[in-house]
Design a protein around this nucleic acid. Sequence first.
DNA 1: GATGAATGAGCGTTCATTCAT
DNA 2: CATGAATGAACGCTCATTCAT
Lengths: 217, 217, 217, 217
Amino acid sequence: MPNPDPKAARRATLLAAARDVFVTRGYHDAKVDDIVAAANVAKGTFYLYFDDKRSVFAELVDQVVEQLTGAIVHVDVGGDIEAQIRANIRGVVRVMRRDPLLTRILLSYAPGLDPAFEKHLRGFYDGLKRLLEESLAEGQGLGIVAPGDARLYASFTVGGLKEVLLDTTATDGDGATVDLPRLEDAVFRLLEGLFLRVDSRPQAETLIVAPLPVMAD
Amino acid sequence: MPNPDPKAARRATLLAAARDVFVTRGYHDAKVDDIVAAANVAKGTFYLYFDDKRSVFAELVDQVVEQLTGAIVHVDVGGDIEAQIRANIRGVVRVMRRDPLLTRILLSYAPGLDPAFEKHLRGFYDGLKRLLEESLAEGQGLGIVAPGDARLYASFTVGGLKEVLLDTTATDGDGATVDLPRLEDAVFRLLEGLFLRVDSRPQAETLIVAPLPVMAD
Amino acid sequence: MPNPDPKAARRATLLAAARDVFVTRGYHDAKVDDIVAAANVAKGTFYLYFDDKRSVFAELVDQVVEQLTGAIVHVDVGGDIEAQIRANIRGVVRVMRRDPLLTRILLSYAPGLDPAFEKHLRGFYDGLKRLLEESLAEGQGLGIVAPGDARLYASFTVGGLKEVLLDTTATDGDGATVDLPRLEDAVFRLLEGLFLRVDSRPQAETLIVAPLPVMAD
Amino acid sequence: MPNPDPKAARRATLLAAARDVFVTRGYHDAKVDDIVAAANVAKGTFYLYFDDKRSVFAELVDQVVEQLTGAIVHVDVGGDIEAQIRANIRGVVRVMRRDPLLTRILLSYAPGLDPAFEKHLRGFYDGLKRLLEESLAEGQGLGIVAPGDARLYASFTVGGLKEVLLDTTATDGDGATVDLPRLEDAVFRLLEGLFLRVDSRPQAETLIVAPLPVMAD
DNA sequence: GATGAATGAGCGTTCATTCAT
DNA sequence: CATGAATGAACGCTCATTCAT
């Protein structure tokens, strides 16, 4: 037996090729011809494994989304909160390390630049923010998160993390990545400053960030 | 004389039309046909005022970049630091309010999704981060910014702000926006928690965020 | 003024080119490239005047359908019946003479060979048969049409005419056509034998064609 | 021995599958994939039994052509003419009943829609018409066929029959068919009116349909 | 023989850009 | 200057056919 599963291998080859091309060229500039050339297969072969160009992209994105979703666990306030938060950070960074190119695609999501994927990706980020927002609200009830607009905290945090992670990912995709424990530590301290009050001691000068209403002009 | 400068007016009309179309459709889905239709001019006219589709987009982006750049002043550590920082925040938010559509384009920038504009927009954000980084470093020397990796602070801050401002911009572009003073206040408090120590009192438990080296695998 | 309406002229050129190509190559073998080559325009020009390949074909078909529909008048039993029937035959043959290529497309309709146009063309033939059927039924009431299944008469007549007209149209499309009055006469005599009893005299040995029920197996 | 001839069985399965697919989808919309799926064999197997897609279609058509050819016998003017003509009609209708799907393919032939099969099918119809024409000419010599253009009679008859038979075939192919004796009778009476003078009595008012010359414009 | 993965020529359609009027 | 008809390169996708296993 030459290969355990040649079909899966082909699929993986195409997926990897697509990932490379999407990352270096962007979705629109990535031609199916580029992908099949990178995968060293004929054009038709591409359509044997994927419905169309868009669906490969979607699959790539979903892949990271799932990995990231799996890496994040809900914080149990009964346990060691700092440890759990650190574990979440570590999980996210690990996924990123494992496939920086793929992660880069996800991090590069931007509403407006491409309405085609807006819905797809927005769902992930919205879910992420909601999860974080709820955790923060819960934490606020317990006094371990600074009072203020939890949604605002969540949004700022997600945005800040995206930017930082994007910055620590090399553009050229040759695998340069960051020192894992250090990054984990840095991010934790950032969040600590932002809203965490995990030392449990009630603080005299807590930040109060008022809820931010959206108003019509 | 009907108009002081009919040519400039045409240009402005086209620019505004392009802005609308780019925001609602995204760059790639925005067709030159859409733009000229929105501007009520013939297709050829478009090329009388712009080299190509890309250059209109670039010009629009540059427009916001310039406005934002103009709205941000270097913080003079001799003066009222909080006031100056608040002024900067206010300036940025004001630009955003004045032309939410245009700002949205800028905020929606994402490296990787479209390499075509990567260079163009990256320059702006890099400049912004460098400016912030330098200010923070200076502030750290004066004890009014928490110690730690200034670049990381800058990156996180820029990313967080992008996300928050994007969230507070209505997708439909019909002008729903946020309460200005409240937003200014909220953002200031966020930054305060993150790294600002503007009350000048040396703090016992300062955050120490170690510099974050980028390493090869 | 060089041309009265250059746009209409272009359209007509393309339509004529499409007609030629469709007739000689058939719908599927007719490539848009063939059409634009025949019309001496660029490929994109084609799409300036038509939505897609199918719609040109549909327009061509509709063109003949309308001409034929216009050429056929309902027989007024109060007037000279033979003259009116002959006028109808003459009208149909004239349309065919005027544009044999176009007519050939219509005559070449066949259900099953191409479901895409089945609906479009079937409508015409169904209408034609229904019109004929009703006229025949009316004629039967007046004793000027032989008794029998009017629907069967109509179907047979339409099929027979199609075949005859197709036979008298040269395949190569170089315009060979038939002698008009002779054809009119021949077809009239055919119909006369089939079901017409225009001499009004009640006939002893009328044809009796029983209604033809469609049954399940 | 499971089957007397497993290879022939495979062939037959494929042929039947192709027939179904061609009838329901039409030649161009019928994909080889559809056929092999309907036949439950692998794609490659198709090419083990047939040269290409076209040749299956040709073979299917030839199949009906042969059946029909076999069902039609030359009319012996020494015998009972009406009986022989009726027998021919009955034979044709029987073939049609036995395989309505296949027949439908043949009846649906239309020159011009698809030149690919023009040659193939035209041969059959031309042969049919010639046979009929010769029989009619012979009958005219014997006074049992009305005088007139025998070719025109033949063409009209073939076309009329095609249309009638097509009409009496359900589109969905689920086998709805017509009452055999009734159809035979109806068709016979149609032909009787058209040109048959089988009652042998010399008729005072014979139809005279002049030969129809094809002329150049 | 049977399989079904692989192939690649080919086609319809789009759209940024040009240029004669 | 303005127009908008014309252009044609480019791309995503299809599907009949081949061939290694």
